[in-house]
Design a protein around this nucleic acid. Structure first.
Length: 673
DNA sequence: ATGGTCTTTCTTTTT
DNA sequence: GAAAGACCAT
């Protein structure tokens, strides 16, 4: 397919900063990949001087693949397509000395972070889960706003902020002692480095001569700074985004960054992609009318040349079981009549918990399905265990990893022993591992405890020496054998079947790691265990084409997870007040983001779109009678076919709906102040 | 240390 | 009302 004139303009404009406002389905990925190819083939850029940033590893992988197809292996060599965090990690790995880090730092994911915070703030927060969550996000927000612990303390207004800022400081100190970094550090540290060190800035600006950013509306403050520092005065960059698809503000994303760009780069060229190649005109018209209820930074008018096609449908169900049955029944009939594949259908919902009934119904009807999201591979306990072993072996000071596996499988090292070791380590200001060798420890810890502990740490030393010495693959094989992990799984799992599953996961992880150690991976690079562990913590598992995207399965996912995807037939379920818009968003007066979420859902559909809702729903144990989502009333009713007479017939009724909407907003505002 | 019962929670989530 | 997590008793 040829690029249209707007897309061509976006690809060929390379002499200055460029913002591409890419509506849903307007071919933004095509623009990015074509632009990279254009830079290399027609503008004398070397691939190794071009970087493209995304938010997810999946997006990065896909983009890499697509560029690879147009460019060929040789021309694409050295091209940097990665997430913000991976680029940050790479910079840190190269400049760790300037940052005052040791080479073998650990990466903490948010669970590690939470575990550490919990332990650190026993005195302050007394294990209060809500407060801990708040603290975690407060620290994350501070880091994203580039504030150090000292600055946070200085700015802290409330007593709680004071306390949190104090915990932030404790946390930073402990992370330093562990020689560990969290995800936010992966952006924060490079930004500080580039900001304060001119030579460093020049070096990286010289390396990255053209920068492209996908999903720009999802950037937060530090990520935007990162972009600004990387492009520098030269300002050779293209960012692609759509403010109507900003659904991550609760995670610190600042869609205002789209507007800021114009202020910071007055010569910014703004190019709008308004032709949609995905959906029927009817679906698109519906989406446009819905989103017109939101304020806009940039006006755009999406259009499609695909004919109207089927009406949009609204199906009303008695209750949520009925809803699932209706959707699945409908799906079966539709597939039969249209001779389509299961993978052409997707069921989208607001919250993960909604998936259960659909899953059940699909299973009963023997329909293959795939749920994205839920518990990820890396939060499975067996994977976390093995990862902890690997992390400890690459950074002996990583106390979190140490604690996770010191008694897994059982080594008869119980809480009492660890408690004593912990206090001693604290006293000496050393890591748990290091302390276990100190002579002074024997005054606190004797007999079996000490013996078991030292047997373990000596074994760790031996293992890490084996790895240092070279044959990591053999060393790893030895590790899994030594700890009898398989036996432990069979012992600790509820059923042999579960144990088998878990062992399969371990083998999967193991084969990824060994493939990378031997350079038998997608980029044919031999990696060190340290690098591999860091990348795995970032969830960047280098899957090689074994994606089961091809499998013929109905796709189930949250609206958030559906962003960027498309399906011929979409069921948007739970279109009710309280669910979409979610009640908490209504209470907070943040219906706009919910509307964008509905917009994202609608614009996933290529051919047909069906909303479903329930008259009754069980929620928190009690029966409620939800109203149809206000968004349904905002849609053009002429394009909508309700299965029951639920639509507001008169203009008056419509007004009433709108009014109550405004009244709700007002009530929420009132509540807030 | 393990297993059972009681209590709590019930939006979205990547890195 | 169900599932996960905390807590207590063994």
């Amino acid at each position: 397919m040829k690029l249209n004139s707007r897309q061509t303009e976006a690809v060929k404009y390379i002499s200055g900063p460029c913002l591409v406002l890419a509506g849903a389905g307007s071919g933004k990925t095509r623009v990015i990949t074509n632009k990279i190819a254009y830079l290399v083939q027609h503008c004398d850029y070397k691939a190794r001087n071009i970087a493209a940033l995304t938010f997810t590893n999946k997006a990065a992988r896909e983009m890499k693949e697509r560029v690879g197809k147009t460019l060929g292996k040789k021309e694409a060599k050295g091209l940097m397509v990665s997430t913000f965090h991976t680029l940050g990690l790479n910079i840190i790995r190269r400049e760790y000395k300037a940052l005052g880090l040791k080479a073998n730092f650990s990466l903490f994911d948010d669970q590690d972070q939470m575990a550490l915070l919990k332990e650190l703030t026993e005195a302050e927060l007394d294990g209060d889960k809500d407060l801990l969550k708040l603290l975690q996000s407060a620290i994350s927000n501070w880091k994203n706003e580039m504030l150090s612990a000292a600055e946070a303390q200085a700015y802290a207004q409330s007593e709680r902020d004071q306390l949190f800022a104090h915990c932030y400081e404790l946390y930073q100190r402990q992370m330093k002692a562990y020689n560990a970094l969290d995800f936010d550090d992966l952006i924060l540290l490079p930004v500080l480095l580039l900001r304060d060190d001119q030579e460093m800035r020049q070096r990286w600006q010289n390396k990255i001569r053209y920068l492209l950013v996908d999903e720009y509306q999802d950037t937060n403050t530090s990520q935007y700074l990162f972009v600004k520092l990387l492009v520098g005065e030269r300002s050779r960059f293209t960012v692609v985004g759509d403010d109507d698809q900003s659904v991550y503000s609760w995670r610190g994303a600042q869609p205002e960054n789209l507007g800021l760009l114009q202020k910071d780069f007055p010569s910014l060229r703004v190019i709008k992609l308004e032709q949609n190649y995905r959906s029927t005109s009817r679906i698109l018209r519906t989406a446009n009318i819905l989103i017109a209820n939101n304020p806009h930074l940039f006006e755009k008018a999406l259009f499609s040349e695909i004919p109207d096609g089927e009406m949009l449908k609204v199906i009303t169900a008695k209750n949520e079981d009925h809803e699932a049955e209706k959707v699945v029944g409908e799906l079966i009939a539709h597939r039969f009549l249209n001779n389509t594949g299961y993978k052409d259908y997707s069921i989208l919902y607001r919250g993960n918990h909604q998936s259960r009934l659909f899953e059940k119904s699909l299973m009963q009807n023997r329909i293959p399905y795939k749920i994205s999201g839920g518990t990820s591979f890396f939060s499975r306990s067996e994977i976390k265990d093995i990862m902890a072993y690997l992390r400890l072996l690459t950074n002996l000071d990583d106390d979190n990893a140490f604690l996770r596996i010191v008694n897994t499988p059982r080594r008869e090292i119980g809480p009492v022993t660890l408690e004593k070791l912990g206090t001693y380590a604290n006293m000496r200001g050393k890591s748990l591992f290091a302390s276990s060798f100190e002579l002074g420890l024997e005054q606190h810890l004797t007999g079996r405890g000490l013996e078991n502990l030292q047997r373990f740490t000596r074994w760790i030393v031996e293992m890490s020496e084996n790895i240092e010495r070279g044959d990591s693959v053999a060393a790893l094989r030895e590790l899994v054998r030594d700890i009898h992990y398989e036996d432990w799984l069979y012992e600790s799992s509820p059923s042999p079947k579960a144990a088998e599953m878990r062992m399969k996961n371990v083998s999967q992880l193991y084969s990824w790691v060994t493939a990378d150690l031997e350079g038998d991976n997608y980029d044919n690079e031999v990696k060190t265990l340290k690098e591999i562990v860091q990348r795995l913590t970032l969830r960047d598992m280098m899957e090689r084409g074994e994606d089961d995207d091809e499998a013929d399965q109905v796709q189930l996912m949250t609206l958030h997870a559906s962003k960027g995807l498309e399906f011929p037939y979409v069921y948007l379920v739970g279109a009710e007040e309280g669910i979409l818009p979610h009640q908490t968003s209504v209470d907070e007066g943040n219906v706009e983001e919910e509307r964008r979420l509905a917009y994202v859902g609608i614009t996933r559909a290529q051919k047909e779109l069906t909303f479903t809702l329930c008259k009754e729903r069980r929620q928190y144990g009690e029966l409620i009678k939800p109203e149809p989502s206000r968004f349904l009333y905002e849609l053009p009713q002429d394009d909508l076919h309700w299965d029951v007479e639920k639509r507001p017939v008169t203009q008056q009724e419509r007004m009433q709906k709108g009014q109550s909407h405004i009244a709700n907003l007002r009530a929420a505002m009132f509540k807030k102040n």
